[in-house]
Amino acid sequence: MKRPKTEARAEDERIGELQEWLQRSKQQDLEAFHQLYQRYSKRILNYIYRMTGSVADAEDLTQETFVSAFQNLKKLKDDGKFESWLFTIARNNVYQQFRKKQIPVGSLDAGGEEERSEYERIAAPVRDPQEEALYSELQHVVNEVIEELPEKYREVFVLSAIQHYDYKRISEIVGRSLASVKTDIHRARLRVRDRVKRYLGQSS
């Protein structure tokens, strides 16, 4: 399907802008890098958070990711792959952290829930108390369902369902074949569906 002209132009402008920021960042321009940070920090933070289950770790590793990206930007050959490259750095940091702490990959610390609610309150829109209670209960269900996924499925699920990346980009980030990514996303989606269904069946 052909994109409408205005949409295509906006996309071109976005790419042009991105390339300019990248070029300037490669010359150690911190202001340009700030623009890149603003565009990608939320995605990186949430990806790491979903993988580690800890807000503090998510912040620390996001910091490390951006610092490392800035210092190694010159090594990035294809500017079009910046986003995947950034996610690969984040992913490496996550797995390094798992190894350092010697914890099973993706097992969530006990503090996740309290830390999370603190942050989520900030972004939560205003609802009436009853609606709010139901909403946060269902949010809790979704969080739990994602946390329960085995790490291999969770990672691709987060990248697909939360970050809305296409399979090709996900395969670039996780360094696996397109077919394997497709299979894992399929399995993850079925698991999530079954868990949600079970929950909604129980509560109704």
């Binding site: 939320k42 933070l45 949430n46 958070y49 807000v55 998510a58 999370r116 942050y119 989520e120 900030i122 972004a123 939560a124 909403y135 269902l138 949010q139 269900v141 979704v142 969080n143 369902v145 994602i146 369902a161 939360i162 989606r189 999530v192 569906r193 949600v196 269904k197």
Partner: peptide
């Protein structure tokens, strides 16, 4: 289930 997760997924700022 796609719609459910999409609606109730929370994110950090």
């Amino acid at each position: 289930s796609y719609e459910f997760t999409e609606t109730y997924l929370s994110s950090l700022e």
